[in-house]
């Protein structure tokens, strides 16, 4: 057991669902709440939750720069839902004014709650690049990807609309694979 665990950012959100998903695949994980815990990891998952809460806590505990360094070192990062917002380059705040300062690791423009409020949340089939069969995508107050920069690859679509992107080893999904099936997204 010399292989390093996959980190799961555990400041707030559905990190336990990601842990269960990794567990099902026999992958060791570590909850990350401090910079030194991130150092011990070979990859990082940023879970769903509230992006305002998570970015705030990330800055308070001093994890912003370590995560940027982690990405610069070429280690894989996966963000789902709020995690996608945190990875994005730009957040369209719509008419709402509370600012989320994202990490800027994915050159996309996202809109928080871009599909509406909770009553508009839905489950539907998502087409994933490289997979023959569609997978169930759970969209809960999900962010909407409005613009995709050059060099960013589209890895998942819903009704032809981009809902998953990848740039190098950084992947962001608007939906929750952890609430559906497992996650082989990190590899």
């Amino acid at each position: 057991m010399t292989e390093q665990p996959v980190g799961i950012l555990a400041l707030q959100g559905d990190f336990a669902l990601h842990a269960a998903a990794l567990d099902r695949q026999g992958v060791a994980y570590l909850y990350v709440r401090r910079p030194e815990e991130l150092t011990a990891c070979r990859g990082l998952v940023i879970p769903g939750g509230e992006s305002t809460t998570m970015t705030r806590l990330m800055d308070i505990v001093g994890l912003r720069q370590p995560i940027l360094d982690f990405a610069a070192a070429g280690k894989p990062i996966l963000g789902t839902c709020a995690g996608l917002i945190m990875l994005a380059a730009r957040v369209d705040e719509d008419e709402r004014r509370h600012g989320v300062k994202p990490l800027g690791l994915l050159d996309v423009l996202v809109r928080r709650n871009g599909y509406g409020r909770q009553v508009d949340s839905f489950v539907d089939e998502v087409v994933v690049a490289g997979r023959a069969d569609p997978v169930p995508g759970v969209f809960i107050r999900a962010p909407r990807i409005l613009e995709v920069g050059a060099g960013v690859e589209v890895v998942a679509t819903w009704r032809g609309e981009t809902v998953g992107v990848r740039s190098g080893k950084v992947t962001g999904l608007a939906f929750h694979p952890e609430a559906g099936e497992g996650e082989s997204w990190l590899s």
């Binding site: 559905d14 769903g48 949340s121």
Partner: peptide, 28 residues
Amino acid sequence: RLKVGLAEMLKGGVIMDVTNAEQAKIAE
């Protein structure tokens, strides 16, 4: 599944009572 899904997203957090927009802003 969607209802419980939102509850899952709220885990590890604090939900605050507010009585006006100003308090809501402070809470957020």
